[in-house]
Nucleic acid binder design. Structure first.
Lengths: 330, 330
DNA sequence: AATTTTTTTGCAAACGTTTGCGACAAAATT
DNA sequence: AATTTTGTCGCAAACGTTTGCAAAAAAATT
C-alpha cells in the first residue's frame, strides 16, 4: 500500500499541490470550501506529512536528542519524562540514546544524532569522556547542546545541573544534627566534576562546623563496591555511627551490608543519601535523603534548549535546588 | 556554518554529484584515485550524509521505534538495552517513546513514528488500549510491528513474550513446596491478557495439585493499592502464610505492609514474586522470584523484526522461558 | 462599462540524495 | 586499422514538501 502524498490528494481533488499544502495548514489564502474538501479527503486517506521531505525542505527537524549514561536510572528517567512531556507539548519528538557510561557509544550516538539532523541535544557526559570538540562542532553547526547533571567544566556550553554543593551541605547539616561522632561518607566516580563538587563542599562544611566529627571518605562506582567498602568500615568495631551515600547505587550496596550485619537503623547506624526518593522509601525505616529531582532538571533543560534555539547564545549554568526529606534513618 | 553536501564536494573536486556519491560508497564504477580524493575531502569537511534526503529518495529509514509503558521499569529497560544493542550492530537507530500506560499517548507516539517513517516498531500495549486497527494499518503499510510483553490476543500480529503460564506455574510449584496453607496471590491489571494468562495458569495448577491450599486472589495496579490489599488480608488474623506478587510494583507495596507490621520473612510469611531480580534483591532476606529477562526478550524481538523486514510475514508468537531464583523468603 | 482591488489558485524551484542510462575515452580484440 | 570491450564518469529524473511569485477569477470601486 502506497503512502498518501500531497500529489495524490491534489490529483483526486483536481487541485495543485501547493493549494493542497496550504489548505492543510490553514493558510489564509485558501478559501474555506476548498479547505474543507482537502481536509476531508486527507482525513479519509489518513494522510501523514512526510517528515523527511519537510526536513529536507525546511532544514529543520522536529527531533531532539537525549544522551544519558543509562536509562535504568530513576533520576534520568524522570529527566527524560520531563523533556518528553515538554517536547510533546511543543511538537517535538525525542530520541533517547544511552552511552552506557562508554565514551565510544557516546560518540556513535552523537553521529546518529548528526545524521538524523536533530535540532538540539541534551547530553549527560559519560564517565571520563572529555572530547568536547564534537560538541563544540555541533554548536558551530547551530545545533544547541544543553548539558545536564554531569556537565563539563568548560564554560563555552550551556549547562543545567542540581545544586550539588547545596545537596552535600544539606546532608552534612543533618549529620551534624544527629550528633554523629564517626561518619563514613561514600562518594561516586572520582573523575566526575559532580563528585568533586559534592565532596569538597561536604568536606569543607564538616571541617568548619563540626571539626570534632571524624569523617572517612571513600569512593564507589557500583553497589558491589559500596557494599564491600561498608563492610570494611563497619566491621572493624570502630563505632561507625553514620553513613552518607551520594547515589542510589551506593545506598543499595551499603544497605546490603547493614542488613547482613543486622545493624539497627537508626539506633546502631544512621543513614542518609542523595536520591530522588524511590530507593530510600523501599527500606524500613525509610532512609532520609536529600531530594534531587530529575523532573525539574528536565523542565529547566528544555527551557534552556528553547532559548538557545530561538535567540542567541545563552551560555549559562543553571542549577535546581534540593530539599531534605525526613525518613526514619537519622 | 553550512552543512557539507555532495554538491559542495562535487564542486570543490570538479566532479559530478553522482560520481561523488558513488565514490563515497565504493561503487566499482569509480576509479581508485578519485575515490581516494573524494574520501579525503569528505573526511576533512566532515561530511555527514543527510538522512532525510536518503530516506526521501530510498523510502526507507534506518530508525526503529519502541513503545513502552514506562522506561522507569527494569524489565523494559533491559528490553530496550537489548534492542538498542542489536540495532547499533545492524546500523539502525532506536527511537524510544513511552505511553505512560495511556492509550492516548500511545496513539500520539504512533503518529510520531509514522511521521518519521520508522521502518519498524516494537510495541508493548498500554493498559486497556485495544485499538489495533492502527497497528494493522502499519502492517499494511509494510511497517512491521512486533508486540512484546503485553501483547494482543489477536493473531494477525507478531508477538514475543515471556512464557507467562510457565512463570505462574513455577511460582505455584514453590508455594506448594513451602507447605503453604493460606495464600494471597496478587495479580496485576485485570484487563491485560498477560494477567489473565498468569492467573488462570496459577489458579488451575493450584486447584489440580494442591486443592487443600486456600488461595485468595486479588488485583492491584499500583504499589499503593497492593500495600492496602496486603494490609487488609494480613490484618485480620486469618493466618496468611504466603504471598505471591506478580509484579515488582506489587511486591514493593506488599513489602511496605510487611515491614510496617514487622512480620518476619520467611517464618511469619513467605514471599515470592515475578521479577527481573533487582527489586527482590534489595530486601533482606532476598525475595525468591521467578526471573523474567527483558534482555533476552529484546534479543528475540529484534530477530523477529529482522525476519519480518526481510522476508514475508512470520506471524508467530514466541516465548522466552523463565527460571526460579532462590532468595531466602520461602 | 472600465478599472482597480481582493480573493483564490497554480507554477516552478529548491532541499540532498540515489540510480538507470548514456557518453566518452582508453584498452583489448579482431 | 577497424571493431568491440572495458573502465570512468555525467545527465537527469525522482522522492514529498514549502514558498515566492505570477496568474486567473471574482468582487468592489470608479
Amino acid at each position: 500500500m502506497t503512502n498518501t502524498t500531497l500529489k495524490l490528494l491534489a490529483q483526486q481533488l483536481q487541485l495543485s499541490i501547493s493549494t493542497v499544502s496550504r489548505a492543510l495548514k490553514d493558510h489564509p489564502d485558501i478559501s474555506a470550501s476548498t479547505k474543507a474538501k482537502v481536509h476531508a479527503l486527507a482525513q479519509s486517506l489518513d494522510y501523514e506529512p512526510n517528515a523527511y521531505a519537510i526536513q529536507l525542505r525546511t532544514q529543520s527537524s522536529k527531533i531532539l536528542g537525549v544522551i544519558v549514561p543509562a536509562i535504568s536510572n530513576l533520576f534520568y528517567d524522570s529527566f527524560i519524562a520531563a523533556v518528553e512531556e515538554e517536547s510533546r507539548n511543543n511538537g517535538y519528538a525525542v530520541m533517547i540514546l544511552q552511552s552506557s557510561h562508554n565514551p565510544e557509544n557516546e560518540l556513535s550516538n552523537l553521529k546518529i544524532f548528526r545524521q538524523n539532523r536533530v535540532s538540539g541535544v541534551f547530553a549527560c557526559l559519560s564517565s571520563s569522556s572529555e572530547n568536547l570538540e564534537v560538541y563544540q562542532k555541533m554548536n558551530e553547526r547551530e545545533i544547541p547542546v544543553v548539558f545536564f547533571d554531569i556537565v563539563p567544566k568548560d564554560n563555552r556550553f550551556t549547562k543545567v545541573r542540581m545544586a550539588d554543593e547545596r545537596c552535600a551541605i544539606m546532608a552534612a547539616e543533618n549529620i551534624i544534627k544527629r550528633n554523629a561522632k564517626k561518619v563514613l561518607a561514600i562518594f561516586g566516580d572520582e573523575v566526575l566534576s559532580i563528585t568533586q563538587k559534592r565532596k569538597s563542599a561536604f568536606q569543607k562544611f564538616m571541617q568548619d562546623f563540626a571539626p570534632k566529627i571524624h569523617c572517612s571518605y571513600a569512593h564507589a562506582n557500583s553497589s558491589l563496591h559500596a557494599e564491600e567498602l561498608m563492610k570494611k568500615f563497619a566491621d572493624k568495631k570502630n563505632k561507625l555511627d553514620t553513613v552518607f551515600c551520594m547515589t542510589d547505587e551506593i545506598l543499595i550496596g551499603v544497605m546490603k551490608t547493614i542488613q547482613e550485619l543486622q545493624l539497627k537503623i537508626p539506633s546502631d547506624i544512621g543513614v542518609i543519601s542523595i536520591s530522588n526518593g524511590f530507593i530510600p522509601n523501599l527500606y524500613y525505616p525509610h532512609i532520609s535523603y536529600v531530594e534531587t529531582s530529575g523532573y525539574e532538571l528536565g523542565k529547566l533543560a528544555f527551557i534552556q534548549m528553547m532559548a538557545n534555539m530561538k535567540g542567541g547564545k545563552t551560555l549559562t549554568e543553571l542549577t535546581v535546588d534540593a530539599k531534605f526529606v525526613e525518613g526514619g534513618s537519622m
